[in-house]
């Protein structure tokens, strides 16, 4: 009789997803990018403060213009660390565990698990573990960057007087929170990054059913996101909302304001496609 094997399977999958050398290596690389951003921006902050002391401020220290919320990696768009982190985000999300189904299918490990459990449980556990590993590898460096920057730069509530320094337009997603409860806004963006990091990782899981090349499985999601980012060029001067996750995962608008409907639609689409393909094709496929 088949007992409920989902819980132990999920524990094993989560343990494998987080305790592997690819997860650790990618996390270290992502942390380096995040800390590179923190180092640059803290240095810039102190340089600006010292310049203001030397040249004077005409009585206005512009305190709300220099806040944690436009200096953490999700709020600044000027450092090399920010550039590397947000551009390579889909690639970093996939590296920790996106390849696991392909390897387990190739080595035969999948057969030994499925004969003791069920395909449905195996693929559900695999999906959750891949999602979690992809999400965590993005989420943790962002949190550490936020904490490090918060140690040096005060968390002053942003003011609409200084929108030049914030670029969160009133039409942008959660802008009402940004100018009232900025910490809630940042936490929501951290969760959003976790979710999309997880979704990017599961893209490679879904792609594993169509390709027999490990390199392609990991890199195709990254290229798909880059193509989506490039497709914005055809909307120039026609549609003024952000459609690229590389831009809207950054809490402060880089080019266009963010629409919650686009984020929600893309997120749901990614989930339906990845979860649908994984569970349908995975369960249907004859592995023996």
């Amino acid at each position: 009789m088949m007992t409920n094997t989902l819980t132990p399977l999920l524990k094993i999958e989560l343990s494998k997803a987080i305790k592997n050398k690819y997860f650790i290596t990618t996390l270290i690389v992502a942390l380096i990018f995040a800390l590179l951003s923190a180092w640059y921006i803290i240095d810039l902050h102190f340089y600006t403060q010292s310049m203001m002391k030397i040249h004077g401020t005409n009585g206005n220290p512009m305190t709300p213009a220099f806040s944690l919320f436009n200096h953490w990696i999700g709020g600044e768009a000027t450092s090399l660390g920010f550039t590397l982190f947000f551009t390579l985000l889909p690639l970093m999300a996939v590296l920790p565990y996106g390849w696991s189904y392909f390897i387990e299918n190739k080595t035969g490990y999948l057969k030994t698990v499925v004969t003791r459990s069920s395909k449905w449980y195996y693929f559900l556990a695999k999906y959750i573990a891949t999602f979690t590993a992809g999400g965590l590898v993005i989420f943790l460096p962002l949190v550490i960057n936020l904490i490090v920057v918060a140690c040096f730069i005060p968390a002053v509530t942003p003011s609409t007087m200084y929108t030049l320094y914030y670029s969160v337009a009133h039409v942008s997603m959660w802008s009402y929170l940004f100018y009232t409860y900025p910490l809630v806004f940042v936490i929501l963006y951290l969760i959003l990054n976790f979710i999309f990091g997880g979704l990017f990782a599961t893209m490679s899981l879904a792609i594993s059913f169509f390709f027999k090349n490990r390199i392609a499985i990991i890199l195709i999601p990254f290229f798909l996101i880059l193509i989506l980012h490039y497709s914005r060029t055809f909307l120039a001067y026609k549609y003024y909302r952000e459609i690229s996750p590389l831009n809207y995962l950054h809490s402060v608008s880089i080019e266009n304001p963010v629409s919650s409907w686009i984020v929600l639609t893309q997120g749901l689409l990614f989930f339906i496609l990845t979860f649908g393909i994984t569970m349908r094709l995975g369960v249907k496929r004859d592995i023996l």
Binding site: E76, A77, T78, T83, Y230, I254, E255
Partner: peptide
Amino acid sequence: RTDGFIFPV
């Protein structure tokens, strides 16, 4: 501070 970096996609 006012112009972010936009990578050449």
